[in-house]
Design a protein around this nucleic acid. Structure first.
Lengths: 199, 199
DNA sequence: CCTCGCATGTGAACAGTGTATACATTGCCA
DNA sequence: TGGCAATGTATACACTGTTCACATGCGAGG
């Protein structure tokens, strides 16, 4: 495959793949049309057969980045062992994974939430949101979390981890400040208290 | 003043002023050198006598935007009446002001925390950070907040309001979701609980 | 007071962007 | 098999940031 110069068939996917790779290493600003075209061995104008404008391409890459985030959260969730306090440990693992993703993959994280790319966070790709909601339902179901906080819990939890993630991925890690892992523990513990959970 | 084409003396300040104005209305992407030069009635190259590169200009504009944020927080703090629970109401007012700034001035908020412009949030311009820390000290001093949470409180509070602000200013306000004011109330209440404060 | 030096601004150019348009190629289907 | 719609090319254009040689004028030292 990938022989004929014309019609190699999946140019759209190839462009997105290279975009995701570039953005991962060098951030959203590394997403430049002509470079992607060169990566794919194609003329710059060819991209316009698949994306009306580069903003549309950018939006799609952002969606894929958000998908990566959801995958990381889900993986962390499934990595958690069963047993005592499993629901709480799962919930904490998800939160930690969110911030970890922001720190370990700053390029993807920044891309995921770049202005103009998010049309409706919870509507369009409910994956990450659903992972959170399911974890919260579990907490209520086994009595770990008071039901009265259930309604507001998603926003409280999401704001906290998103804020920490944004701060840690934007600000270069200062050697004097709190180490990353401690910061994560602190914020996750804060969320747990905010949800009325007593350990 | 502003007569001689050459050496109008405060070009640097004028450029920053126009940049702040443009960025306020149309976001960070509206910061284009040639337009700023045109605004100031000056050749594009003139800017290079005051800024090595546009990134330096951007960084300075970001600093000014963060200063606006701190000013808004301080104003909200001082607008709070004295009386019963004054320290808590002040603290809440500060948090609300942070998110309100993100919602009401998305251009400035986004500019303030754009990647690469924040060298060390808490170090470089401690204004906003200090406002928060002072409010927390007050809470501990009058016994509203347990002292054991004092150390981790700044990070918990900051992450929450910054996260909500980032989400609300990035995501266009969806008519179906929680109204902005309710979202703010929910998150602020969450922070209060996370800090072990019982109303 | 004058003059010369240095800070500041100008003009023209260049490389790198996204994008539009006219044209070329190919796969597919009637 | 012939033609047509989908896909890719070549070229050009407007708009970025940036550089460099040159122009200007303010202010300090004779």
């Amino acid at each position: 495959m990938t022989e004929s110069p014309y019609h190699h068939g999946n140019l759209r996917a190839v462009l997105l793949d290279h975009a995701l790779r570039r953005v991962r290493q060098h951030g959203p600003s590394a997403l430049v049309l002509r470079d992607l075209a060169k990566d794919a061995g194609v003329s710059p104008a060819a991209a316009y057969r698949h994306f009306d404008t580069i903003e549309h391409l950018r939006a799609e890459v952002a969606r894929l980045a958000r998908q990566e985030l959801a995958t990381a959260m889900l993986a962390a969730r499934n990595r958690t062992s069963r047993g005592r306090n499993a629901s709480l440990r799962r919930f904490e693992a998800i939160g930690r994974a969110y911030v970890r993703f922001a720190v370990d993959e700053p390029g993807w994280f920044e891309t995921a939430f770049a202005k103009g790319t998010v049309l409706a966070t919870t509507r369009e790709d409910p994956m990450a949101w659903d992972v959170l909601v399911d974890a919260l339902d579990e907490l209520v179901a086994d009595g770990t979390m008071p039901a009265r906080y259930r309604e507001t819990a998603p926003l409280v939890a999401w704001a906290s981890v998103h804020g920490l993630g944004a701060l840690l991925s934007t600000t270069p890690h200062r050697p004097d400040g709190t180490p990353v892992d401690e910061a994560i523990d602190v914020v996750v513990a804060g969320v747990v208290r905010a949800l009325g959970i007593i350990r």
